[in-house]
Amino acid sequence: MKIVHLCLSNFYIEDFGYQENLIPKYHKKNGHDVTIIASRFTYRKDNGQPDLAESGEYINSNGIKVIRIDYKHKWLGKLNDKLKIYQGTYNLLEKEKPELIFNHGIQFLDLLEVARYVKNNPNCKLIADNHAAYINSGTNKLSREILHKRIYKRVIQKALPSIEKIFVLAPGCRDFVREMYNVTNDKMEYLYLGADTEMINFNNRNEIKRRIRKVLNIDNDDCVLITGGKLTKGKNTELLLKSIQKIDDKKLKLIIFGAFSDDIKDEMLKLIELDDRVTYIGWLNGEDVYDYYLASDIAIFPGTKSALWEQAICSGLPLICKKWKGMEYVDIGGNCIFLENDNENIVINSINKLRNDNRLLVQMKNIAETKGYDTFSYERISKQVIP
């Protein structure tokens, strides 16, 4: 099947572990002819900061053709980042002649061009997904009432007859689509985020653990927590660091990977320096994240939701994470401990619960490595979207 993945509603970062990377990867692996049409919006690999890729066409590391396109109306300035009207979207679809279009995100005006193509080419099916929820979108009145409830809603409603299915990543994403855009439940289906399970090397786990811990000067019998990602204030890294400081245990270690946003970077680095049990390793390539998970015992994310949660679960890690409405699905049978609020004592008690109960720790690991691995594997997820 000829499949075009459209990444025009948001960013597209080459060689990362996001859905926009991995579903196309497994579609290609399963024998489909795949093209990605993406915006220029990306992030730098060395520090995780926003960046713009060059317009043009290239073949990525998975052997997939990627076409980067720019905005059509430069005079709109910053408004382009909200409206998202691109150069030649319809013509590119005419050239690629897809049988299936997977639209990653529905919040862009060129959705109308995509719907027009599908209407004019009834042999092509259009599916889409929605990543937006109340925790990451429509967070102020102007965005909520004007951008989402009027502009995006009008576009989505006009395109809706051409869309076969809108996949939602979590219950919170379903609520957002229903309440903001008036899309009915029968048009939606769950499609969870996941992990590139091909990168998780359970067979060499012990060797990977020894190698990484040796480099980081961490003993094999230490209890290692790991956290990371795009470390903005909302990720609550400060809360985690201050909580760790209050746990008197030299065998407890914390690995932090990723990039701090500029507004908190200096403060966080100073906090890290205060505790020699904390190791900050900077930005990691997507495939390297899995090895560091295999070298750890517990994943902990006390702030906003990240795709790294599912990746940690697939790597066989118990998960301590902030409880968000509609995100409870990451608990697939006892692999998670939820933090009810931003309280140091709750974080400390959750860590101690696993640190002092090896039987519970092993039980949660087993659930993650078996049921979690199957639930959040992109190899399985990629097949779910094929009509």
Rank of each mutant, 00 (worst) to 15 (best):
T184A: 03
Y190C: 10
V177F: 01
V183K: 01
C173D: 10
F176Y: 15
F176L: 10
N204Q: 14
V168F: 07
F202M: 15
L216V: 09
G194P: 11
M180I: 03
I163N: 00
L193V: 06
D222C: 12
A195L: 09
D222E: 07
N217Q: 12
C173S: 14
N182M: 05
I218S: 03
M188N: 01
K187M: 12
D222P: 09
N201P: 03
K214A: 13
M180S: 09
D222S: 15
K165S: 06
C223F: 14
E207K: 15
A170E: 14
L191H: 11
R211W: 07
C223H: 03
N217T: 06
G172A: 15
A170N: 13
D186C: 03
I166N: 00
I208K: 01
I208H: 03
I163A: 04
K158E: 12
I208N: 01
V224P: 02
V177E: 04
L169M: 11
I156K: 03
G194I: 06
N220V: 09
R178T: 12
A159N: 10
K209E: 09
D175T: 01
M180K: 05
N182K: 12
N203L: 13
I212N: 07
N203F: 11
R205I: 15
M188E: 04
V177T: 14
D196E: 14
M180H: 01
G172K: 05
R211F: 04
L193T: 01
